[in-house]
């Protein structure tokens, strides 16, 4: 006997994520290997790891852009790989490069979601868009095209576009990458403030140690497609695991064999 689908979540209901034994293979390459962890409703969860460790692929599984080879990702009670889940849970994804619609103005980029989902008349949509823009101090960029914006502004517009959706789950892919320290700090502040005001569950994929350890409720470290450790930031500050310590506070030793190799190659 099949069980009925769980009812769609109400707008203010925050939602958690459960990743259970997730494995993803592209041809013969295993990108994610038996990954399991849980993101609790309303928390800021940071996923850290070196380049190529599978962070973005994992994020794509959560938003349903990839399907697992084995294992499962659940958002609340819903299967993340089922396209119908996106109609039941409002999840917003802030892409690393912004992924703004280049043929639309900033206003139209933000208004697209409420217009397509008919969330009110044009006046309501304008109010909603202006509110999101004001939170991120982007009012002046209203009629600009994405090509006219700086990298930091594009990132903020992408966050504003996510806010317009009034998401229950907000996913950030490297939100501070390629930004100067001041802009990076602004984005960190925005992520923390948003959670404070909206209680939205936030999953942040990042390399940025200061971001992860300053705002996260919990942090996971992924290496070579496997979860190496999960814990609160304090756990990572006093960890004795040499691999994690080296990842979080890498020491540059010019006598290390890898530099010796480079020297030899150069000669």
């Amino acid at each position: 006997m099949s069980t009925a689908d769980p009812a769609p979540l109400s707008l203010r209901q925050t939602v958690g994520i459960t990743v259970a034994h997730l494995t993803k293979k592209f041809a013969n390459v295993t990108v994610l290997n038996d990954v399991s962890f849980e993101v609790r409703p309303g928390e800021i969860f940071c996923l850290m790891g070196p380049s190529g460790s599978g962070k973005t692929v994992l994020l794509k599984h959560i938003v349903g852009l990839e399907t697992p080879t084995s294992g499962q990702v659940r958002i609340g009670e819903f299967d993340a790989s089922d396209p119908a889940t996106r109609a039941k849970v409002r999840l917003a994804f802030v892409f690393q490069a912004g992924a703004l619609f280049n043929s639309m103005t900033v206003y139209d980029n933000l208004a697209l979601y409420p217009r397509e989902h008919r969330l009110g008349d044009e006046k309501d949509i304008r109010e909603r868009v202006m509110h999101a823009l004001s939170i991120l101090s982007l009012e002046k960029a209203l009629n600009k095209m994405p090509s006219e914006l700086s990298g930091g502004m594009k990132r903020r517009v992408a966050i504003a576009r996510a806010l317009v959706m009034e998401p229950q789950l907000l996913l950030y892919d490297e939100p501070t990458a390629e930004l100067d320290p001041i802009l990076g700090a602004t984005i960190i502040e925005i992520i923390a403030t948003l959670r404070e005001h909206t209680a939205v569950t936030s999953l942040v994929v990042t390399h940025d140690r200061s971001l992860a350890l300053s705002i996260a409720d919990r942090v996971a470290i992924i290496m070579d497609g496997r979860i190496r450790a999960v814990g609160v930031p304090e756990d990572f500050k006093r960890t004795t695991d040499p691999v994690i310590t080296n990842f979080l506070s890498p020491l540059i030793d010019l006598k290390h064999p890898r530099f010796k190799q480079l020297e030899n190659d150069h000669e």
């Binding site: 938003v63 349903g64 852009l65 996106r86 109609a87 999840l91 917003a92 994804f93 892409f95 490069a97 992924a99 703004l100 619609f101 280049n102 043929s103 697209l112 979601y113 397509e116 989902h117 959706m165």
Partner: peptide
């Protein structure tokens, strides 16, 4: 060219995550 660049620059993925089917618009 337009759709391919939208795909490459993840605009199509952004539509999918917003529950706006690319085929529709």
């Amino acid at each position: 060219a337009e759709l391919a660049s939208m795909k490459v620059y993840q605009e199509v993925d952004a539509l999918v995550t917003m529950d706006i089917p690319p085929e529709r618009i």
